[in-house]
Every structure is written in structure tokens, then in C-alpha cells.
Simulated scan of single mutants.
Amino acid sequence: MRERISASRWRFWLLLGANRWLLAGILGACVFFAFVVLGVLDFPTLRTTMETTDPVDTIFQGLVGAIITGTTLVVSINQLVLSQEIGPLGEQRARMDTAMDFRQNTDELFGSISPAKPSLFLQQIIETARDRAAAMKSAVDDSENTEMRENVGTYVDDLVENAETAIDELDEATFGTFDVLMAALDYNYARKMHDLRRLGEKYEDDLSDEQRRTFRETLEALTMFGPAREHIKTFYFQWALVKLSRAILTAAVPALVVAGGMVVFVDATSFPGQLFGTDYMIWVVALAFTIAVMPFLLFVSYILRIATVAKQTLAMGPMVLRNSESPSDE
């Protein structure tokens, strides 16, 4: 996945891999130290400025209003998510019918009842595509066309390697974390569908009926992975938005208390003395500001991941949008 989106290790970790609370904490530490550095470099000092005007009071008054407004928006996010779960009987029945139709399709693909766990469900689709690709390779081994055998062999080897990586990741994945969706994103099914269709078209005249059947069956398995991944992605987005709402609500209460306290109780005579040669007032204001903006930093950390996943999964099917993985159509 990281190679396909041409991201460095740190950028990939920042956008997708990091725990969202940890990332928000790192962003908060950056805000804190930036505020301290600016306070140390400022002249006249913050305490001197507070004796004539009160920038601290002005900033935290604005933050009190922003926190209350942001918390209200969180309620709107929850309503957006829940609106898809709450509806009249007809809509719920239509959702159930659609879900069961897809389950019946996957039951036919597997030859057995589809797993209920998302990780096992995706894993079985990938395993089915891998096994059918291996059967396709065996079917063309007897072909007299050496070029076709080599190209199909290269294609299947790449598919199997990618499948094994995704299967290993899904073995340890639990829904509710990003691991399941991350493993699904690591399986580059769109490129595989495109390459398989090109191979089928290029060697159409050289394929026997049995070989064509194995090509169709492999493509069928790959095709089923697309809607399955989008289905799991939708669940993850709903889950992530609910977690985002809870995280912001959790951070909003202490942020509101701290911001309100700075407005009501802090003036130029508060917190006399120095720490490491820096006025206590700078440390206190920097810490209070960091706590007050923590709901926003949590919002940023969650939306970074959601937006990145959405960008990487804009297309479904054999449509490749990124230059880093665009196949040659020569």
C-alpha cells in the first residue's frame, strides 16, 4: 500500500498507521512547544502585555465559543451516521434483501456459507481468487504458446504473493480497528482485474474452452472483492465517525473548563516565578491553549485517515487512478 501511494514511511504512518489519539497527542505537543518558543521570543513579555491589554482573555473567550460550537457539530455528525441506521420498515427490509443477495452470491463463490466476521469474509474471497488463479496457471501450463505461459505465470505469481500478504494481515486483524481495512487496501484487486482482462483479450485465439473457464472464474472471484471491500469500508467509516464523536465529546469537557478558567481566573499577577528561565505564565498559557484545542486536533487526526482512505478507494473495479500503479496499455 505504501509503495502504491508513493508515501514515505513517516507520512504513511501519519496518514494511516498511527493510533489517532497518539497522533493527536503528538500534534498537541507540537502546538505546546511552538507556543512556548513564541512566548520566549516575544518582546515585550506576555506578562507585561497582559498588564495593559489582555490577549489571553481574548483568545480563550474565542476558544470557549469554538468548543461549544464544535461540540454541537459533533451531534450533527452522529445524526448523519445514525440516519443511515434509522428508517421505516421498507428501507430496512430493502437493506436486508440487498445484504442477503450479496451473501448468496458469495455462498455460491465459496461453495459454503460465507463467514460472518469481516476479516474472515475478506480473507476467504482472497483465498478463493488465489486458488482459482493457481488453477488458471495449471490450465495454461500445457499450452504451446510460450509467451502466454510466461505472462500468465508472472501474473499468478504476483497475485499469489499479494494474496499471501493480505491473508497474513487479516489473520491478526480485528474489526473496530483499522487493521481489517488496511489489509483490504493492501490487496490491489483493481490492477489484477485489469491485467487479467488484458491477458484474456491478448490470447483469446490461443485459449481452449477449459482455459477460458479458469480465466472467467478467477475474474469472478476478483470482481466479488470490490463490493466486499466497499461494504467493509462503509462499516469502518461509520465506526470511525462514531469514535470521533466520542473522542471530541471526551476532550471537549476539560477543554471547556480550562478555557473558561483562563478567562475568569487568570490575570497579569497570576503564576509568578520562572521555570527553566521562562516565565510560568508562558508555560501555563501554552498548556491551557493545547488542552483547549485538543478537540480540534482529534478531529484533524481522524479526518486525515478517513480522507486518505476515501482518496485511495475512489474507484471500484478495474479502474486505476494513481500514476504509481497505472498499468501499461501498450
Rank of each mutant, 00 (worst) to 15 (best):
T48Y: 10
F235P: 00
D329G: 09
F43Y: 11
G28K: 04
S301F: 07
P55H: 10
A292N: 01
A288R: 02
R198E: 14
I5Y: 12
N162F: 01
M96E: 13
D168N: 13
V257W: 09
D107A: 09
C30A: 11
V284E: 00
Q84K: 14
V258F: 01
F235I: 04
A240K: 01
A173M: 06
D54K: 11
P227R: 01
Q124K: 15
E3H: 14
M316N: 10
A94L: 11
L22S: 10
R2C: 01
D205Q: 15
D279H: 09
A307F: 04
I291D: 00
I5A: 05
F32R: 05
N78R: 12
D157M: 13
L159H: 00
I167S: 05
F12N: 13
G153C: 09
A18L: 15
A166P: 00
D141E: 14
A29L: 12
L298Y: 08
W10D: 11
I77V: 12
G65A: 12
V309R: 08
H231G: 05
G28E: 03
K192N: 10
V293S: 00
L314S: 08
G28A: 14
E164R: 11
I26W: 04
K233S: 10
D157K: 14
A139D: 12
A288E: 00
I306V: 07
G261V: 09
T72Y: 08
S245C: 06
E108R: 15
D131L: 08
L222E: 03
P44G: 02
L321K: 15
A240L: 06
R197K: 14
E210C: 03
A228F: 06
I77G: 00
L298H: 07
Y302Q: 08
K192P: 02
A292I: 05
E217K: 04
V37A: 07
T154H: 12
D101F: 11
R322V: 04
M50H: 02
V74R: 08
R229K: 11
E210W: 01
D168G: 12
M316L: 09
A292P: 01
Q123V: 04
V293Y: 00
P55L: 15
L80G: 03
G39H: 00
A163F: 00
A18S: 12
Q211L: 06
G153Y: 14
G17C: 08
G153L: 10
A94P: 05
S119Q: 15
W239G: 00
A259T: 07
N78W: 07
S114E: 15
A251I: 05
Q92R: 15
M316V: 08
T53D: 04
I303L: 13
T313C: 07
A252G: 02
E201A: 10
I67C: 07
Y302S: 00
I167V: 15
Q92T: 04
L14I: 06
T146E: 15
R20W: 03
T177R: 05
A221H: 03
T58Q: 12
V320K: 15
A133M: 02
E330Q: 13
D171Q: 14
F265C: 03
K202H: 10
A34V: 05
Y236L: 05
Q92A: 08
G90L: 12
L82A: 04
Q61H: 11
G65P: 07
R95M: 10
R11W: 10
A34M: 13
Y187A: 07
G176W: 13
L181K: 06
L222P: 02
L298M: 12
I282A: 02
V257H: 04
Y280R: 15
F12S: 03
T72Q: 03
N78V: 06
R4H: 09
